[in-house]
């Protein structure tokens, strides 16, 4: 899947949905707290939230990004649980680089990531479709213009 998101390809769960991340629906600048995204995954309880009660201090969720080679960008590989950043990095090494996948790892607290809402994909991503004038190839090159 293209990292830039292809509207023709259905959203892959792993690529588009980050569990525990905040989701911002299209069209509302300020997220409404009483409006849980119906198509989103079950929300992960924030630490200290009363509904999370029975488990004693569950480890937080972290998102893992792995860079496979020098010169490439980090790619989202998956997520894991860890009590802090040091251990998240080590757990990421153990979980996601066992088959020689990486030369660098980033870990990010899942709750620090704000994602677009998969349910409002139409408004967010489909409006550029059919607007081929936004691409350079739409235009004919004027005569005499070199090196364009």
């Amino acid at each position: 899947m293209s990292p830039h998101g292809n509207p023709e390809v259905p959203a892959g769960a792993a690529a588009d949905v980050i569990r525990g991340a905040r989701q911002v629906p299209a069209g509302s600048r300020t997220p409404e707290p009483a409006d849980p995204a119906p198509t989103g995954p079950a929300p992960v309880q924030a630490p200290g939230s009363p509904a999370a009660a029975p488990e004693p201090a569950a480890w937080d969720l972290w998102e893992v990004f792995v860079r496979s080679n020098r010169g490439l960008s980090h790619v989202h590989a998956g997520s894991l649980h860890a009590p802090d950043a040091d251990m998240a990095l080590r757990n990421a090494r153990d979980l996601y680089t066992r088959r020689n996948e990486g030369v660098s790892i980033w870990v990010v607290p899942a709750e620090a990531i704000t994602t677009s809402d998969p349910g409002t994909k139409g408004a967010f991503f489909e409006s550029p479709q059919g607007k081929d004038y936004r691409h350079a190839t739409y235009y004919t090159k004027s005569e005499g213009v070199k090196h364009l």
């Binding site: 899947m1 792995v66 080679n69 989202h76 088959r99 020689n100």
Partner: peptide
Amino acid sequence: VTTGVAGGDGNASATRITPG
């Protein structure tokens, strides 16, 4: 070009596996 993986399989893992 970027990964050197022939075919560019869109379902492949986000990260590349090699035996080393």
